[in-house]
Write a protein that binds this DNA or RNA. Structure first.
Lengths: 242, 242
DNA sequence: AAGTGGTCTAGACCACGTA
DNA sequence: ACGTGGTCTAGACCACTTG
């Protein structure tokens, strides 16, 4: 129940937690409309302004989306959002294009020390590891290794595994009900290994941009480790600091 | 004058523009307090809620800072803000430490094509170019080339030039009244040149992380071009995507 | 026409910092 | 005690979308 007692959170924060909980437990699915501000206010016994403030903060953190005249919706990961929010590679003219993908391998393994640490699993836990190459206008440019915990993603790669979509986050959401809300990335310069070099058709030792990303759900649970090594001959990583 | 006519911006947006203008023209300097919400509302003939909404957005974009019980202040670039907002290099344990700096050169030149383009100047315009090395625990780790338009920064480096502070953005603000509000960064992997290698005490050809940053003022005027080449042996570039 | 979010108002009380 | 920002309310009107 909502309270306004001394030690408690502010009303709108309590409303926010209720909304997040309803999204988290699947009561309101991605893409679906939520009740109007007036209805929620009535139901929860607060004013519309309080509900509004809670919703505003969730819109700012990309959890909800408002559409004037229509209603408020649980955010959905269409390819557009994946591209503009989570994909930071652009060509040297600043144009952003999603690369094509080709899967090299997809197998089950036991989590290495590093994978276990990054995904907060016990060493040896079953994971799925995907290797793929990504192409910009038919030119191989990135090699990617993606590690997923087998627990939620158990069925992935079991049958017809080489047919994974290009935008994985959409798959996670639609197939497994897992929505990526944030990510931590670490960037380094590394020398291309012989394998990298062969795959990307360049010389071993060529400098590559390595991006190590841990993707997180709304409650900060890590659900994907992705290591990308990218040739920065014609592309770069673009970051805007506000 | 504020209006609520049909084609015009919403009231709180007009208030926001007034506040930004007063900051931009130096009426309210960085670090100083601005009038209270109630006073501004009275002066501008709107309700406190409207002023509040305008201020809230400016706080979100780091232009203003609220301090409960005290007032609202124009944001200031203390070293802390520079470090946590604009400096993205951390060691491999995730700890952020500001490196020491040593200036190698500081000279006046004519803007190269690239510098002119990035700073939106005519080719050949006078610029100041600073070369420095940055150290983490006494180990040379980054080489930096900083280019500033001579116009606003004319006096910089004229006398005793090798005595520049470690956090330049603070200098820009205090000395020249120029506050950096945002930046565009492009990251690439490059091979260390012989000069890089000698400066950083490693072998030519070693992969380095190159960060090319254009720093912008509140009105999006580019005022600094900074190219950093960083050894990522013990450090990396950390980015969080929300 | 009805329902939604978007803006705006006027006033209330609380929590915090300063004097 | 006073002034500040922080929260909350209740109600108004506008702009937009849908039936």
């Amino acid at each position: 129940m909502l309270t306004t007692e001394k030690g408690s959170l502010s009303l709108y924060m309590q409303v926010k937690e209720i909304l997040v909980a309803r999204i988290g437990n699947g009561e309101w699915l991605p893409g679906s409309i939520i009740p109007s501000e007036v209805n929620l206010a009535q139901e929860l016994g607060v004013s519309q302004g309080t509900v509004r403030k809670a919703i505003t903060e969730l819109v700012e953190s990309n959890v909800l989306t408002r559409k004037q005249g229509r209603g408020t919706f649980v955010s959905i990961h269409d390819p557009h959002r994946a591209l503009f929010h989570f994909f930071h590679i652009t060509d040297n003219q600043g144009h952003k294009v999603l690369p094509d993908s080709r899967i090299l391998h997809c197998r089950r393994k036991q989590a290495s020390r590093k994978e276990a640490a990054k995904l907060r699993l016990a060493v040896g836990t079953k994971v799925i590891r995907i290797d793929r190459v990504r192409y910009f206008s038919a030119k191989p440019t990135m090699v990617e290794t993606i590690t997923l915990p087998a627990r939620p993603f158990g069925s992935l790669g079991n049958r017809g595994k080489l047919e994974l979509p290009n935008t994985l986050y959409e798959l996670y959401e639609k197939q497994y009900g897992i929505t990526i809300h944030s990510a931590e990335e670490q960037l380094r310069a590394v020398a291309a290994s012989r394998h990298d070099a062969k795959t990307l058709n360049l010389e071993a030792g060529t400098p590559l941009l390595e991006i190590e990303r841990v993707a997180l759900t709304l409650d900060k649970t890590p659900v994907e480790l992705r290591i990308s090594r990218c040739s920065t001959e014609n592309h770069h990583y673009q970051n805007t600091i506000f």
